[in-house]
Structures are given as structure tokens and as C-alpha cells.
Computed example of a mutant assay.
Amino acid sequence: MSKRFMVVWLLVGAWFFGCANASDVLKQVVKPPQVSVSKFAIAGIQETKMGFDLELLVKNQNPIGLSLAGLEYQLDLAEKQLATGRNDNGLNIAANGDSPVSIPIWVSYQDVLSIYEAVKGQDQVPYKISGKAEISTPIGKIPVPFSLAGNLPVVRPPKISEVSLKVNKLNLSGAQMNLNLKMFNPNSFKLDIVSGDYALFMQGSNFGNGSIAPSSIPAKTTGSITIPISLSFAGVAGAAYTLLTKGSADYQLDFSGQYKLADFPMTQKHSQSGTLKISR
């Protein structure tokens, strides 16, 4: 007789002889499932949000299928509570097998940056992910705890540290220029600039917008980004020409970058203003 049929007959017999005996019989044949954390990693950063991938592995040692009724989790970063949550999406757990459970966790990136201040100067931050899974079995719901501790890389956004403009060609019809950006990568791993869009305003007028070419900046290094700009003076020849010959001007730069850091993507927007140095 297979184990599956044995369990079925025990269930029938337990029901026939009464509920009091049923609980005792089932407790002898139903093995508590095991839950472990198989993966916890940074999934990505989307402007104001930071995501994590939590993957659990539920091991069912019984010849009958069970089900996941729900689970609770808590994420601590640098010994500070960052997030708590509950997931009530049901999941069937196969008999005599392992079933993976994936839980996406999203938190405020600003909250993460605030916690980074507690580990200033370090490239890793300790974490702990813990909780419990509620498994539905023939003997009722069984809470199964899980926990994992380790370190995650500290991920800070890149910073545009310097903006300048070089005029290569200037006449009454237009100008050929290079917009030069200095970008600092504060992280302990390479920063890949996958794509980026910019808009440059000077004295309130749009002096150029477009996309930049992909590039990379090594860890803890300042890299240079050169953006060629072709500007037509149609309709504003006098004002634009005079502005570019002054040597400096008030500016605003809006920059949106798509980055890759280690194994995850990052999307960040930069906006800054000040006095722009113009050289020829």
C-alpha cells in the first residue's frame, strides 16, 4: 500500500472513530513542513523606491499536498526595522517535494539612505529577514518560522558634481557646443550608464535636450560625460549669441539616467541649477 493511500485510510478511520482520536492519529502521520530562505537580494531601484527579492523554499515531506495560507515578514537593515508585511496569496505545495515562493518587497529609498548614515564609510550593511509561513494541513494551520541574516551592498545614487559648457563654433546662425558633466560613482562597484536623457536651460531658455551614449564609471571614481549640442539661433539669435559670449550664465539641468549597478537596475532623476561656466 502506498503512503498516499495509507494517509487517506488513516484520515477516513480517524473521522469514523471521532474527532478526538482524529487529531492524535493525524499528528502521528503528518510531518510539519520546513521553510527556508533560498534567496534575498536587491531587485532594483526606481527613483524613490528600492526593491528586494525574497524567495522561500517550502519542503513538504508528506505524501499528500498541503497549501500555504499566508506569510508574514520583517526586514531589518543595520538593526533598524525597515519594512513589515503580509502576503495572503495561496499556494499549493506539492506532495513529497519542494515549492518555491517569491515575495517582492518595496521600501522607500529615502528610508534606506537614512539607514546608510548609520554605516557611513562602509560598503556593506547587515540585514535580517525573518517571519513565519502559515501552512494549512489536515491537522490545522502550522506556523513555520524562517530567518536569514547577512550583508547587502550599500547602494548610493551617482552625483553630478560639475557642469560646464564649451563653445566649439559660434556664428549668427547657431552654435556647436559640448556640455561636459562630471559624475561621481560613490559605490564599491562599477556604474554602467545604460541610457540617459537631458534638458539644458540657460536664463530660462531651452539650449538643448536629447539622449546620451552609454558609458561606465569605475567604483568610487568621477567620470566625464561629454554631450554634443547643436543649437540654432532662429528667432533668438541676438539673445543667445550674447549669452554664449558672456563666459557664464544661470542654468538648470534636468537629467534622467538608467543605470546598472552590480546585478540590478537603477533609475534616477537629477535636477540642479546654478552658474554655468562657458568657455571657448
Score class of each variant (00 low, 15 high):
92 N>Q: 13
33 P>G: 00
80 K>V: 08
176 Q>T: 07
93 I>G: 00
11 L>A: 13
222 T>G: 02
54 L>H: 04
41 A>S: 12
62 N>A: 05
23 S>I: 09
262 A>G: 00
267 T>V: 08
158 P>S: 13
92 N>C: 09
280 R>W: 12
226 T>E: 08
114 S>H: 09
239 A>T: 14
263 D>W: 09
6 M>H: 10
274 G>H: 05
241 Y>D: 01
190 K>S: 05
99 S>N: 10
239 A>S: 14
246 K>R: 14
243 L>Y: 07
259 Y>K: 01
177 M>W: 05
65 G>N: 10
127 Y>R: 07
189 F>P: 00
84 T>Q: 08
111 D>C: 00
235 G>L: 05
102 S>I: 07
217 I>V: 05
113 L>R: 02
130 S>Q: 12
15 W>S: 12
240 A>M: 08
155 V>L: 07
72 E>Y: 12
26 L>P: 12
80 K>Y: 04
203 Q>W: 00
277 K>E: 14
6 M>W: 10
173 S>W: 10
61 Q>G: 08
196 G>W: 10
166 K>H: 15
4 R>M: 06
125 V>P: 01
232 S>N: 11
18 G>A: 13
34 Q>H: 12
265 P>L: 00
233 F>H: 13
40 F>P: 04
193 I>L: 10
228 P>S: 10
102 S>T: 09
198 Y>G: 00
228 P>M: 10
82 L>W: 00
67 S>L: 01
57 L>K: 14
124 Q>P: 11
99 S>F: 04
158 P>G: 07
59 K>P: 05
219 A>L: 07
191 L>W: 11
21 N>Q: 13
24 D>E: 12
122 Q>F: 11
232 S>K: 03
183 M>G: 07
106 W>K: 05
78 A>K: 03
157 P>E: 00
132 K>D: 00
130 S>F: 05
278 I>A: 12
98 D>W: 00
270 H>C: 03
152 L>Q: 03
13 G>Y: 15
226 T>Q: 05
208 G>P: 00
115 I>A: 02
99 S>A: 11
75 L>A: 03
162 E>H: 13
39 K>W: 00
239 A>G: 05
208 G>C: 04
132 K>M: 13
19 C>M: 13
169 K>T: 14
48 T>R: 02
194 V>E: 13
57 L>V: 13
118 A>R: 15
173 S>K: 11
22 A>D: 09
100 P>C: 02
216 S>C: 03
234 A>D: 15
250 D>M: 04
89 N>K: 14
172 L>A: 14
68 L>W: 04
229 I>C: 07
194 V>G: 04
246 K>E: 15
61 Q>W: 11
75 L>V: 06
225 I>N: 03
205 S>M: 11
250 D>Y: 07
178 N>P: 02
194 V>L: 09
273 S>M: 07
267 T>N: 13
164 S>N: 13
85 G>A: 07
61 Q>Y: 13
162 E>W: 11
53 D>K: 15
82 L>R: 01
222 T>Q: 11
160 I>F: 03
81 Q>K: 15
81 Q>Y: 04
